[in-house]
Computed example of a mutant assay.
Amino acid sequence: MEEEGLERDIAGEQDQSPTLFGERLPFLYIGAPLGVLASLVMFYIESRQASWLRASSALMFPVFAPLLLYWMHRDRSTYEHGLRGMALLIVLSLISGALLNFSSPILLIWIPVIPLSYVLLLGHARAVRWNVATLLGLIVAYILFPVMNDGARPVSVLIFGVSLLAASVSMLLSWHHYRELSVYQRRLYEQASYDGLTGAMMREPGMEILARFMSQADRQPAQAVSVALLDLDDFKRINDEEGHLAGDRVLQGVTAEVRAHIRGGDYLIRLGGEEFLIIFPGMQAEEAYALSETLRQRIPAVTDGLSRRPVTTSIGLAQYRPGEALGQLLGRADHLMYAAKTTGKNKVCTDMASSGQPTGATESAG
């Protein structure tokens, strides 16, 4: 159901949100100068022990890292590209240095640091892929070193292997920490995003998701979005006459039925009290109407015995019109739901005909 889609959203947002990119930039203001200083020291050491050509690879980071930092500082919208550029610069500096200087153990000092650098720059999910690619690149560079350097011998296989092992341990520990942290983050997010009684999504995150689908529909008008505003009829009388425990049982029964019948990519949101919103991404109003009508018909049966009163629902169904505001869409759905209430309740009301959709029943009575 909607939890699966939300978990994918959480995973993506943890590593790729603009806020997170912005929070990483201050760390780069410290880390990048340290990296520049370390690279210059390596250049000095290598230039005294080998040719200037072999030492020149150590200048790659000091030359380009400040330019990337300046670019990200000037244009905050370039965070993601800048961080990827910084990661790519590290890869090129390390592997080019390895191709020319794998006979020096100094280069191996930096290999275990690379996994943590990628975590800072790219987030944990991407860092794993970049780390694997970098380690494979270093293995290739180790094999090609004698070819590139007239038969010179690189550091021993044992020393190189220990360096790779240290990098792998660093990567695994970082990933384990991320997995533990993400579990707690997901629990906190779910507690803030889902109603504890019904399991439906809360209003605020639900509105964010609806706004996202509306933006997608603006870019791709063929990608329809329909919403159904569902309100239980005379619910207050159940609470007043039978108590809130009975009302809670009814709410749980209704939401369980809705969740069992909507698609995996649909979203059920509790707006408050006995009022719910269903988001149907990619669904035209006529198809959403048929599903809403099925739910309207089933709710009295699935709640039979949960209350002494028969439980019915009034539904207002609206399809998003490209360009309209979120409040306008919800306002239309609310107006249609109110129309269902005032014309007898236990109905689905829609404005398909007025919105240019294929004409059909604009309301259905039980």
Rank of each mutant, 00 (worst) to 15 (best):
I159S: 09
A211C: 12
T198M: 02
S156T: 02
G206L: 04
E204I: 13
A211I: 08
E190C: 05
P154C: 04
L188D: 05
Y178G: 13
A166L: 09
R153G: 07
S193L: 00
M207C: 09
L197T: 06
S170M: 15
M171Y: 02
Q191M: 11
E204D: 15
S170N: 13
V155W: 04
S193A: 14
L165M: 11
V157G: 02
A167K: 04
Q185L: 15
A166H: 01
F160Y: 01
R153A: 09
G206C: 06
G206H: 05
I209N: 02
S170T: 12
W175A: 12
A200F: 02
A167D: 01
E204K: 14
R179S: 14
Y189R: 11
R203H: 05
L181M: 09
E208H: 10
H176C: 12
G161I: 08
L158I: 10
R186H: 11
Y194I: 06
G206Y: 03
E208A: 13
R179N: 11
A200Q: 00
T198A: 00
S168Y: 09
L172V: 13
M207Q: 11
Y189E: 08
L164A: 05
Q191L: 10
S156V: 00
V157N: 01
T198L: 00
T198Q: 00
I209V: 13
I209K: 13
M201E: 01
R179I: 10
I209D: 00
Q191S: 10
A152Q: 13
S193D: 05
R203E: 03
Y189C: 08
I209E: 07
L197D: 06
S163P: 05
G199R: 01
A152Y: 07
V169A: 07
